[in-house]
Structure formats: structure tokens, C-alpha cells
Amino acid sequence: MSVSPQEIFRNYVYAGSLTHNADALAELFTEGGVLEAPLVPADAAFPERMEGREEIRRSMAAYYERQTGGGGAPNVEKSRYVLHITDDPDVFIAEIDTVLGGNGEGDGGEVTVSLVQIFRIRDGKIAHLRDYFTPGLVS
């Protein structure tokens, strides 16, 4: 049974953005999977490139541990995404507008982060993920 792009994306968002579960996130990748954020400078808190499931696990656990406060939690009801399925069955693109912060009362403390993620899949796992987002919004 193959895993759909929708399932892969949903599992990735749940493990990463919603629960900050580095173990679950790493298990979504192939053993030698790559997670990279090409727009992130080398000295940023978010790792620019992680190669291999264990490096993804270690690096993301350290990143999640350094995050402070709840202001960066996505507002699921206000956030939106579109998955673009390509001619290559092992590639899909996620176009995302994530709403962060605020208290849900329209207090103006919200910010929308727009990003694009390119997923390359092998055997139902993420073999390569390129995550393009604004580096200044990641602390």
C-alpha cells in the first residue's frame, strides 16, 4: 500500500509544527533522507541542512528544545495550504500560508508565514525535503 502525498504532508506537519516530536519527524524520512532549508543562513537556529535520519532527529530535537514560548504555534484554523501533485509520482510541492501567534481573538498579534516545500518520496518515506521559508521568522 502506498502512502499518498496528503498523508505524508499531514504526518510531517503533525510531527514537526504541531507536536515538535523529533523522533516522529525523523521516522518520516528514509535512512539517508535529507532535510534542507536553502534560504537559512549557516548561523541560524534552524539547521540549514540535515542528512540522515539520525542527524534529523538530533538536530530537530535540539532546535525544538531551544524554542521558547507559545507565540510560534500555528493557528490551524487560519492557516492554509495547497498540495501540487507533479507528473513525477515521487515529487509533490506544498504551498503554505501559516498563521502564527495571536490569541484567536483578533488581537493583531498574528503573522502569516508563506513558504514552499518540495518533497521527494521513496518507498513511502521522505527522501529529500527542501523547505523554502523566511529565515528571520525562525528563532
Results as ranks from 00 to 15, higher is better:
residue 26 A to G: 08
residue 60 M to D: 05
residue 135 P to F: 08
residue 35 L to C: 01
residue 76 V to M: 14
residue 125 K to G: 03
residue 130 R to Q: 10
residue 81 Y to D: 10
residue 123 D to G: 07
residue 131 D to L: 06
residue 39 L to W: 04
residue 11 N to L: 02
residue 7 E to A: 06
residue 127 A to F: 04
residue 105 E to G: 11
residue 91 V to C: 11
residue 10 R to W: 01
residue 46 F to R: 06
residue 50 M to W: 08
residue 11 N to R: 04
residue 127 A to R: 05
residue 90 D to E: 15
residue 81 Y to N: 15
residue 118 I to Q: 08
residue 133 F to K: 05
residue 23 D to P: 01
residue 125 K to N: 02
residue 52 G to T: 06
residue 81 Y to C: 10
residue 9 F to A: 02
residue 84 H to F: 09
residue 100 L to S: 11
residue 112 T to H: 09
residue 36 E to H: 14
residue 49 R to E: 08
residue 134 T to Q: 14
residue 97 D to R: 09
residue 33 G to R: 07
residue 101 G to H: 09
residue 110 E to M: 10
residue 67 Q to G: 01
residue 6 Q to T: 07
residue 126 I to Y: 06
residue 56 I to R: 04
residue 89 P to N: 03
residue 134 T to F: 00
residue 112 T to K: 13
residue 116 V to A: 14
residue 66 R to D: 12
residue 18 L to H: 05
residue 4 S to Y: 01
residue 22 A to V: 05
residue 57 R to F: 00
residue 47 P to I: 07
residue 93 I to M: 06
residue 132 Y to V: 08
residue 80 R to A: 14
residue 52 G to C: 11
residue 105 E to T: 15
residue 94 A to T: 05
residue 40 V to I: 14
residue 130 R to L: 10
residue 87 D to G: 15
residue 13 V to Q: 04
residue 4 S to D: 02
residue 99 V to K: 06
residue 61 A to Q: 10
